[in-house]
């Protein structure tokens, strides 16, 4: 029997999302067969940034917390891998990954605890400032090479069969698997009671409190989860590049990932991934055009904010809407 409470549209759109997801994973899975080495590495980088953008989407797009310090968690996990890696052997992924995630989670917990009552524009400034504190910590102390950074000499090993992450192709598939996993994990969470509560908090926090939700605790959980997932991306980035430096957690990095979300459209998981792809490809294109690519990127961002209020995804939607409405008006014509 059809459940009248559940609008049919949502189950239908759920099926569409699943199809697109399967299609996207398939496309990325067969990509290495047709791509050169350079593009393999580029797509690996984009997939890692997609995970980073997804983690921020949970915070900004679903819980309504605009953070300008998200790179801190990305960078801390990267540094954790670099510091935990033995000098010559390959670090064991099963030991170093949990360590790196825990480091990001703890930093997220501490920062959120300090800013627990701040919201809105305050939250933006305070997250930026604390991220900068972490930046200076790695930049000024000799703990991890100061401003020069340090090397991760060997990629982590998975210790499963003949998988060798030192090979770019194997590493590519690991990152793809992690991206798919994070995407599905977030998809599940957002439909869960926890995810619904976050969306309620974003829509109207006062009402949620009046209903009985301890909203601060929900936001804390979201912040730590988002920080941990950003750490996952940071760990993969450090493993891929074999090198970490303070720029990984500089605030430009935080601004960049926010820009990805806006480009793709926040509050949809696909938006985060589309945003990461479009941003990096755009950056590649601009930097092929001119040494001063930041001028083009900056102007593009300014224009995007002025003319694309709902991101590329929003642009796609409004084009589709216009098509549909013009199509239906065509029907009326004899």
């Amino acid at each position: 029997m059809a459940d009248p409470e559940r609008p049919r549209r949502s189950t239908a759109s759920h099926r569409v999302v699943t199809w697109w997801l399967v299609l996207g994973i398939l496309a990325l899975a067969i990509f290495p067969a047709i791509a050169e080495k350079f593009y393999l590495q580029l797509i690996t980088k984009i997939m890692i940034l997609s995970i980073f953008a997804l983690s921020l989407d949970l915070l900004v797009g679903y819980a309504g917390l605009v953070s300008l310090g998200h790179a801190a968690f990305f960078g801390v996990a990267a540094y954790a891998l670099a510091l935990a890696a033995p000098a010559s052997d390959a670090p064991n992924l099963w030991l170093t990954l949990p360590l790196a995630l825990a480091a990001s989670a703890v930093i997220a917990l501490v920062i959120r605890a300090l800013v627990i009552r701040t919201a809105g524009v305050y939250f933006i400034m305070v997250t930026l400032a604390f991220a900068q504190m972490v930046y200076y910590f790695f930049h000024d102390t000799r703990l991890a090479g100061g401003s020069d950074g340090i090397y991760v000499n060997t990629r982590p090993s998975l210790e499963i069969g003949s998988i060798d992450l030192a090979q770019d192709l194997h590493f590519y598939y690991l990152v793809l698997a992690v991206l798919a996993g994070v995407f599905i994990f977030l998809g599940i969470i957002l439909r869960s009671p926890f995810g619904r509560a976050l969306q309620g908090i974003k829509a109207n926090e006062q009402r949620m409190r009046a209903l009985g939700f301890p909203t601060l605790r929900y936001k804390l959980a979201a912040f730590v989860l988002a920080g941990t997932l950003a750490g996952l991306a940071g760990y993969l980035a450090a493993a891929k590049e074999g090198y970490v430096n303070p720029e990984l957690l500089a605030w430009h990095q935080s601004g960049m990932v926010l820009m990805m979300l806006i480009l793709g459209g926040m509050g949809t998981l696909f938006g985060a991934v589309i945003g990461a792809f479009s941003y990096v490809l755009l950056q590649e294109w601009f930097s092929n055009l001119t040494k001063h690519w930041q001028l083009l990127m900056g102007s593009f961002i300014v224009l995007a904010v002025l003319v694309l209020p709902r991101g590329l995804a929003g642009l796609g939607q409004s084009i589709a809407l216009r098509r549909r409405s013009s199509a239906s008006s065509d029907d009326v014509e004899p």
Binding site: I188, I189, R191, S192, P193, F194, G195, R196, A197, G200, M208, L211, G212, F213, P214, R217, Y218, A221
Partner: peptide
């Protein structure tokens, strides 16, 4: 439904659909 959910605010209900 969200209002009813507020009677049982376990933070860790992450897996089953609401």
């Amino acid at each position: 439904r969200l209002a009813a959910q507020s009677r049982n605010v376990h933070l860790m209900r992450w897996l089953k659909p609401a």
